[in-house]
Nucleic acid binder design. Structure first.
Length: 270
DNA sequence: ATCCAGGCAGATG
DNA sequence: CATCTGCATGGA
């Protein structure tokens, strides 16, 4: 058993070989989190969770256990995925990042976050995202701020986006918020990955890489690998087999996350 | 100071 | 279809 819902506000995770809270938080798929004495606090949409890390388990205290059971993808056995990725250089990055899981993020939050992420650095756009929540999101009593709802996002002007530090992306964000209002997650969810990709590419500020991030981190399309500046450098270092896994494999997105974490966060070489 | 950051849009071959 | 360029902004 990977994890269990103890009650509506608590989850316990038992298999830490496939749940590394530190690696998950630093793998570039969640930007609203804080380190605490015992672990992390993380926010998603209007929800919050406190992760307390113990030697043999992680206790997740949260506002909605069902939400975070899905968010942390706790029904998926990552041992199966890692077996499918057992190539030499991937093995090396899985040794340090093998506890990463692909989160099921809120799709509006992922769209806005990754539009802001383009040609930006993580430290800076994380600051922007937190400012966005504090300025336009609803305060959660004693637990920080929610990500702004679509209604709240729609009140933000071009000048406001600029003031948040979004730079030239302000116009993209204005239009993307409008477009989000005309899209339906439950419909998009039913689309093939190819059709979903096309739908996402129609949004302002969304190109191939941002669309891939949205598909992986909000639609859980594990076969989609966002190829960013880090992966472009990495891919030439991989064997042809591994390149095929990254570009076309069933778990390309997961493999990509292991590589991204090892390179970008741990500054390892392949 | 120059280059780069989880790239994209628009223009030009 | 592929390639080139401008773009806000702050950190290295």
């Amino acid at each position: 058993m990977i994890a269990q819902i103890i009650n509506p506000h608590q989850i316990e995770v038992y298999d830490l070989s496939q749940f590394d809270a530190y690696a998950i938080m630093h793998s570039g798929q969640v930007f609203r989190y804080q380190t605490t004495n015992t672990g992390f606090t993380v926010w998603s949409a209007a929800h919050w969770a406190e992760l307390r890390i113990f030697p043999d388990k992680v206790i997740i205290k949260c506002d909605d256990a069902a939400y975070f059971y899905r968010y942390f993808d706790l029904t998926t056995d990552y041992r199966i995925i890692k077996n499918a990725l057992a190539f030499p250089k991937l093995q090396k990055v899985m040794e340090v990042g093998g506890g990463i899981r692909i989160l099921q993020g809120d799709w509006v939050e992922m769209v806005i976050s990754f539009i802001i992420s383009a040609n930006n650095n993580i430290k800076r756009f994380t600051k922007t995202l937190n400012a966005l929540c504090e300025s336009y999101g609803t305060q959660i009593a004693g637990h920080g701020y929610a990500f702004p709802t679509l209604t709240q996002l729609a009140t933000i002007t071009v000048a406001d986006w600029r003031a948040l530090g979004c730079g030239y992306r302000d116009q993209y964000l204005m239009k993307a918020v409008q477009q989000l209002g005309q899209m339906d997650f439950t419909v998009l969810q039913t689309l093939s990955t190819d059709a979903l990709n096309k739908a996402l590419l129609a949004m302002a500020g969304v190109g191939p890489k941002v669309a891939a991030c949205i598909m992986l981190f909000a639609f859980h399309r594990l076969e989609v690998a966002p190829i960013d500046t880090w992966l472009k450098k990495a891919i030439t270092q991989l064997t042809l087999d591994e390149q095929a896994v990254i570009l076309h494999g069933q778990y390309a997105g997961v493999a990509q996350q292991y590589i991204f974490y090892a390179l970008q966060h741990l500054h390892q070489t392949l």
